[in-house]
Design a protein around this nucleic acid. Structure first.
Length: 462
RNA sequence: UCCUCUAUAGCUCAGUCGGUAGAGCAUGCGGCUGUUAACCGCAGGGUCGUAAGUUCGAGUCUUACUGGGGGAGCCA
């Protein structure tokens, strides 16, 4: 394998001829010398290739090299006479592999708006900013596995297609092979799902949690990391219709253990990025979100604030005149409340626990007060909710009662309830939206720019 | 889904009080002894998102629609 540009840039000057493959970011020309800046995505910085025009008789091919062209350059790495780089390549050979006609190539050697880049999602990874996001995202994806594997968690692949239509975490995308122009009906006029592929109504998963719990009840500690689909009609900087979610589930674990893992997990991800992507993070810190590196360091070094929902409401009520929607016990925390809590009151990520049962899912463990449940949300400054989790209700009678209270059919959850019938233990877990974490780390404003090909309402191009 | 802002050259934007459009970059050509988003000169490039309306006259004012941004709700 040939060396990547990141490796070439680390070389000491020497006579050996090396090969650089990549795409031209910019070309600077004068009468006798031509400079190419090459990038191959291996790092933010490019390799400067110096071409002495006197030694290149074929001036025409040099002219055809433009921004975006694919080139292979050979020559020794030499100390640079210019000030902006330590080393550069003194080209002895320059091969134009793929042209990029300058009058039609959409990327220019100047700054583009992030919205414009979103319209050319197939070319935007060639930019500094999206390239940096891609590298950071890669580090974080790898770190997810590292973190859990180092701690003895097993990676479980939960299904993407589900027929349990009551996971309750959001609107679902229906999956069907029925002819929508000629839908089979039952005698009473309903859609006859018996004729559908799975023999019943199916949809894309909104969470792997329930299935994850089944494996936690056998392997003790497991995690999932896969795509998740929500058909919510939401148009925000923090929602996608298709996103990647990490969901660990731990048996013999209560809410406190859950919180500990969640906090350690986030800190581990952040630290990996700071260690491995210093150059990219400098870029984000300077041009995207001022001081984001320092923020991450602070988050890594200081413990998250822990607060019950009841205490959080007490704190927020003191500032009710500042809110559009006043806080009161029983209300769902608004975005403005979350922001105020993390940015003004705590200036730190906050884990809020023990929410009123009315605003949380059926599977969360009911506290002894009968009013609150053992749920937790990790709220981050600038971002809001980044993790949602809970200790699960492990008691069959209480869980069944909760289902009935919410008018859910216990029969539909028969296999989930079986986990409480046979060898039930306290267990807990959480879900981390991967893109939200990437967004937090990079400081990118819009979640659509931290996933290669965003899917959102009316957006599924490329 | 709601609120709000916005749409002018390939890109990023300016366009005053309503009087038929301008810059930088990009592109083409020329120049320049090592450049750093290179620089200098010249040139080409526009149905001002779409459709109506007000007006003698609309890029500019009004309405609707469409695309985009931000916020809210929902959530990860």
């Amino acid at each position: 394998m040939k060396e990547r540009i990141t490796d070439l840039l680390k070389r000491a000057p020497g006579p050996e001829t090396v090969t650089a493959e990549g795409w031209v970011r910019t070309k600077r020309d004068s009468k006798t010398v031509c400079f190419l800046e090459m990038n191959d995505g291996s790092c933010l910085k490019g390799l400067q290739v110096v071409i002495d025009k006197a030694t290149f008789a074929d001036d025409a091919s040099l002219t055809r090299i433009t921004t975006g062209s694919a080139v292979v350059c050979r020559g020794p790495i030499v100390a640079s006479a210019g000030g902006n780089q330590a080393v550069e390549m003194a080209a002895t050979e320059v091969e134009l592999v793929g042209e990029a006609p300058a009058d039609t190539y959409p990327l220019q050697k100047k700054r583009h708006t992030i919205e414009y880049l979103r319209e050319i999602a197939h070319l935007r990874p060639r930019t500094n900013i999206i390239g940096a996001v891609a590298r950071v995202r890669n580090t974080m994806a790898y770190a997810v596995h590292q973190f859990f594997q180092e701690r003895g968690f097993y990676y479980v692949n939960t299904p993407l297609i589900t027929t349990s239509d009551a996971e309750g975490a959001g609107e679902m995308f229906q999956v069907t092979t029925l002819d929508l122009n000629n839908v089979p009906k039952t005698l009473d006029g309903q859609v006859d799902y018996n004729k559908d592929f799975f023999g019943k109504r199916a949809a894309l998963t909104v969470s792997g949690q329930l299935e994850g719990e089944t494996y936690a009840m056998a392997l003790k500690n497991i995690y999932t990391f896969g795509p998740t689909f929500r058909a919510e009609n939401s148009n925000t900087t923090r929602h996608l219709a298709e996103f990647w979610m990490i969901e660990p589930e731990m048996a013999f674990c209560d809410l406190y253990g859950d919180m500990e893992v969640a906090e350690g997990f986030l800190k581990y991800l952040f630290k990996q990025v700071l260690d491995k992507n210093a150059e990219d993070m400098e870029f984000f810190s300077n041009f995207v979100e001022k001081g984001v590196m320092e923020t991450l360091r602070q988050v890594i070094e200081s413990p998250f604030v822990h607060m019950t929902y009841t205490d959080a409401i007490k704190e927020l009520e003191k500032f009710n005149d500042k809110f559009e929607y006043p806080a009161y016990w029983g209300c769902d925390l608004q975005s403005e409340h979350e922001k105020f809590l993390t940015e003004q009151i705590c200036n730190s990520p906050v884990i809020v626990t023990d929410y009123p049962k009315e605003i949380k899912a059926f599977y969360m463990k009911l506290n002894d007060d009968g009013k609150t449940v053992r749920g937790m949300d990790v709220l981050a400054p600038r971002l809001g909710e980044i993790i949602g989790g809970s200790e699960r209700e492990a008691r069959l009678d209480v869980l069944t009662a909760r289902l009935e209270e919410l008018k859910l059919d216990p029969a539909a959850y028969w296999w989930y309830l079986d986990l409480r019938r046979f060898g039930s233990v306290p267990h807990a877990g959480f879900g981390l939206g991967f893109e939200r974490a990437v967004r937090y780390v990079t400081g990118m404003q819009n979640i659509r720019d931290v996933i290669p090909f965003p899917r959102a309402v009316r957006q599924a191009d490329f």
